[in-house]
Amino acid sequence: MLMSTTVPAKRTAMQKLGLDKAATQKAIFLLLAIVPPFGGYLVLTLFPNILSVYYSLLDWDGLTDSTFVGFDNFVSAFQDPFVWRALWHNLLLMLFIPVLVVLISLLLAYLITNKGYKESGFLKILFFFPNVLSTVVVALLWAFIYDGSYGLLNEVLSLIGLNLDNFYWLGDERTALWALIPPWVWGGVGLYAIVFANAMMAIPKSLYEAAMLEGAGHMTRLFKITMPLVMPVVRVSALFLVVGTLKGFEMVLILTNGGPSGATDVIGLYMFNLAFGNEYHNYGYASAVGMILFVILVTAKLLMDKFVPNRGVEF
């Protein structure tokens, strides 16, 4: 009887020790997996944002002693016509760039996945190529295209009989802002075409086969099967594009630096020049403008959550 009671007791203790060891290993793994990225988020994202809120209440050039001014920076920002002009330019870009990128990317992705081209693999690489290039390279490439003296665009137009006499597209207030859209779209289409193509390739072929047996044509399959199933991916991509268009300014900085005469100034570039430009060094005021941009970004996200459907069709 002593043997029959002792062995199960030892076995239970060993099992408990094994469970405790497994739980400890799991806790250590989770700690190592979560703490570094969360710590990086706290140090590199959350803490700087909190500091920006504090800096927005100061009159400070980033170097000398600061003066607390409360909400005066925000009052000045709302009365600043340059802020409103930059926001208007951001709005115009936001109305065109995300829509064009999504539509062109969806078209390319659909052609790659549903037309059965033998060159689909090569086409994916070709479409993705602009994303391999840095923003500086893309901007400089399009600066040469738009150049008035030897630019490719003017040369092509002259071949079809439109001689513009060395017209510089980025140097005219009527065309400079609109000239920013093609390089921005060209630089973003490739990535989202690959994303949408992968989402379409994940759709079971049986759905298309069943639809074809029912007599559904290309357009019916596109709008009744493909689009509903990839809509969650399109929604997230559109959100990234809207946010990137609102806060991005690298392309504008390299191509025009806000010129001519502020015709291409955007809120991110204006904030950057306020803090680090040659004429201004008002870090507190720039932080206040950044807080306004933050509120606009959050508002844009909430509006997209409300008006853009989030429900995808499951299969």
Score class of each variant (00 low, 15 high):
190 G>E: 03
179 A>S: 15
130 P>M: 06
131 N>L: 01
128 F>W: 09
216 A>D: 01
171 G>C: 05
234 V>G: 13
282 N>V: 00
267 I>Y: 05
98 P>M: 04
64 T>K: 15
240 F>M: 14
105 S>R: 10
135 T>E: 12
46 L>Q: 12
269 L>I: 00
119 E>L: 15
68 F>T: 04
244 G>Y: 05
150 Y>D: 14
30 L>S: 08
313 V>Q: 12
70 G>E: 00
109 A>E: 01
7 V>A: 13
14 M>H: 05
141 L>I: 04
61 D>R: 05
76 S>H: 03
164 L>P: 02
276 F>A: 11
108 L>P: 00
184 W>H: 08
20 D>W: 15
111 L>M: 13
80 D>V: 02
179 A>L: 03
125 I>H: 10
112 I>H: 11
25 Q>N: 07
296 I>P: 12
122 F>G: 08
220 T>E: 14
12 T>P: 07
287 S>K: 08
156 V>P: 02
261 S>V: 03
7 V>E: 10
129 F>D: 13
201 M>K: 15
158 S>T: 14
169 W>N: 02
19 L>R: 14
231 M>P: 09
61 D>L: 13
288 A>V: 01
282 N>L: 07
147 D>M: 02
236 V>C: 11
84 W>A: 13
251 M>D: 11
293 L>C: 09
18 G>D: 15
228 P>F: 05
68 F>H: 14
89 H>D: 09
38 F>A: 15
26 K>Q: 07
